[in-house]
Computed example of a mutant assay.
Amino acid sequence: MIISFFFSLLLGALAGYVAGRLMGSRTSALRNVVLGILGSIVGTFLFNLIGLWVTGTIGSFIAAVVGACVCIWLERKISH
């Protein structure tokens, strides 16, 4: 259980990092982890909304990256 928790954090951090690079955002590692985890929730919701089901590590990673990109985009729209 602890290993899966740390794996989820690592996957979230990596997804947040990739999303930050794709969106041209330079943030801290902690923010990358938060964006990746939040992005995972948002991405999974969005994928399910359009009828795509997220399964496996690769699917979860893709959903987290897409969701984190959406979160970065929303944050930029709100703060500017």
Rank of each mutant, 00 (worst) to 15 (best):
F7D: 04
N32G: 04
R21D: 04
G56E: 04
F5S: 10
G59P: 11
F47R: 00
R21N: 05
S4W: 07
G20R: 06
I50R: 05
S25I: 05
I41R: 13
V33Q: 01
A29S: 01
G24K: 06
H80P: 08
S79L: 15
L52A: 03
F6M: 09
T57D: 08
H80F: 04
S4F: 02
V18Q: 03
R26D: 02
L38D: 09
W73H: 13
T44N: 11
L46V: 11
K77C: 12
T57C: 07
L74K: 12
N48H: 01
G36S: 05
T27N: 02
V34K: 08
N48G: 02
V54Q: 02
L35I: 03
I78M: 15
M23Y: 03
L35C: 06
I78C: 12
G12F: 11
V34S: 12
S28L: 02
A29F: 01
A13Q: 05
C69L: 13
I41W: 12
M23H: 01
E75C: 14
G39V: 00
C69G: 10
A13H: 07
F6P: 03
V34D: 03
L35Q: 08
F5T: 13
F61M: 07
V70A: 11
L35Y: 13
T57P: 04
F6Q: 11
A68D: 06
A29V: 03
G67I: 04
F45N: 10
N32E: 02
G39F: 05
H80D: 14
A68K: 02
K77I: 06
A29Q: 00
M23A: 03
S4N: 09
F45C: 14
G56Q: 03
S79T: 13
F7R: 10
V65Q: 07
A63V: 08
L22G: 03
N32P: 00
L46N: 03
I58R: 02
I37R: 00
I3R: 14
W73R: 10
G59Q: 13
L74R: 15
E75G: 15
I37D: 01
L30V: 07
V33L: 12
W73C: 02
I78L: 15
A13F: 11
F6C: 07
I50C: 05
I58M: 14
S28H: 09
N48L: 00
I37Y: 08
T27V: 04
A15G: 10
I62Q: 04
C69N: 03
A63I: 02
A68W: 06
G51Y: 06
W73Y: 15
S28T: 11
I78G: 11
I2L: 11
V42W: 12
K77P: 13
